[in-house]
Design a protein around this nucleic acid. Structure first.
Lengths: 116, 116
DNA sequence: ATATCATTTGAACAGTTGTTCAAATGATAC
DNA sequence: GTATCATTTGAACAACTGTTCAAATGATAT
């Protein structure tokens, strides 16, 4: 067990740091990460897959996903803030739907990655 | 402020729950979510984008990303366990690279989603 | 063997996330 | 108005995540 004092001097010190990515990508980095974060929870992913077939009420979603209504509602609010889903109210019932079809493409590409 | 006792009885009660997704998708749900989780951190995403241009050493990556070597190394171990990156050792230096090009496709699809 | 550099590893710690519970809100019917 | 159903909301709490720090390991050179 040697007591090494971290000198923190490496050859890279002389290299001037610069991003390997373009400025516009840099700007979108956080936005992209946030998008992926919404897809990174199994239950939320399941929820999105349910909605990819048709619009559904919160109550039905909870039933089919096997979780509480409250939990689904919280997830839906998160997805709504991220503009991944939208909804319409019909009387007492709220029907949620996917906002566009890009989510499908994302999942499809990910699925290809997994299956190899 | 009414004290409502949750009756937890809704019309959906009569509906038998079934997944809206196919069995094989159900199996891959966790795997897919895990994949997205690795892309959900801005710094890790930045790291992957750096590697999408060429292989790089840990030291250089830390320099360019503006974080400590330790932090980068931890991230790389995570990505390595997920088989998203691999590496080769050359003397004292470890060079990391992307494991395949699916990551590019994923990022590209996500980027399209963001730009609309 | 010792020194140094590049990298890894484990522990601790702060920040974030998702669920649950209880209560509130919105809408319809009586 | 009250009752009921569907949904939302906020607070609390446990679980997870990523960073930092210190120490260890791996490799090369002297």
């Amino acid at each position: 067990m040697k007591k090494l004092k971290s000198t923190a001097v490496c050859p890279c010190e002389t290299i001037q740091p610069h991003p390997f990515i373009s400025p516009e990508d840099k700007d979108h980095l956080q936005v992209l990460a946030d998008l992926f974060k919404h897809l990174s929870d199994p239950r939320r992913l399941n929820l999105l897959l349910c909605l990819s077939h048709a619009e559904h009420s919160v109550c039905i979603l909870a039933k089919h996903l096997g979780v509480t209504v409250s939990a689904v509602s919280h997830q839906l609010q998160t997805l709504r803030r991220a503009r991944l889903v939208s909804f319409r109210r019909e009387g007492k019932v709220c029907f949620y739907r996917l906002n566009d079809n890009h989510v499908h493409k994302l999942i499809q590409t990910a699925r290809e990655h997994v299956n190899e």
